[in-house]
């Protein structure tokens, strides 16, 4: 078996996940892309574990731990997204701007800033 095939597949899958995290707007789709990145890492771990014939099976056991952590991460992430949806009625990461720095005066949209100020006052 050539180790380069699983390694290249895993690298490409990680890049796909990077694109998804950066390009998606819906928070649940961002979570899905994060899952893709975690799975790319898992494939690398399993491939190199099998490749080195690790007697302690470190790579495969670490893969199991990664799956456990990913499950916990999805559970907590969805709880946070549902909380955001309950408070804001929106899950678009572009629309959650209350933590950003103030815009340069004169550049922003005054109506949107006023709406945000009202929202932040809640």
């Amino acid at each position: 078996m050539h180790i380069v095939y699983p390694a290249v597949i895993s690298a490409l899958l990680f890049a796909v996940g990077v694109y998804g995290v950066l390009a998606r707007r819906n928070a649940i789709l961002v979570l899905m892309a994060v899952e893709l990145m975690l799975n790319a890492v898992n494939l690398n771990l399993v491939a190199f574990d099998v490749w080195w014939r690790d007697r302690l099976h470190g790579g495969q056991v670490l893969t199991l731990f990664t799956i456990v952590i990913a499950a916990a991460e999805v559970g907590l992430g969805l709880a946070i997204i549902l909380l955001v949806y309950r408070n804001r009625k929106v899950v678009d990461v572009d629309a959650l701007r209350t933590l950003r720095e103030d815009a340069v005066p004169g550049e922003g949209d005054p109506a949107a800033e006023a709406a945000e100020a009202v929202e932040a006052g809640l």
Binding site: A11, Y19, L22, N26, V93
Partner: peptide, 19 residues
Amino acid sequence: DGLDSENRWVALVVAVATA
């Protein structure tokens, strides 16, 4: 059509560079 943000081309460049 609103699932992608406007900076998807920047994201594509970053992803291709990573790959």
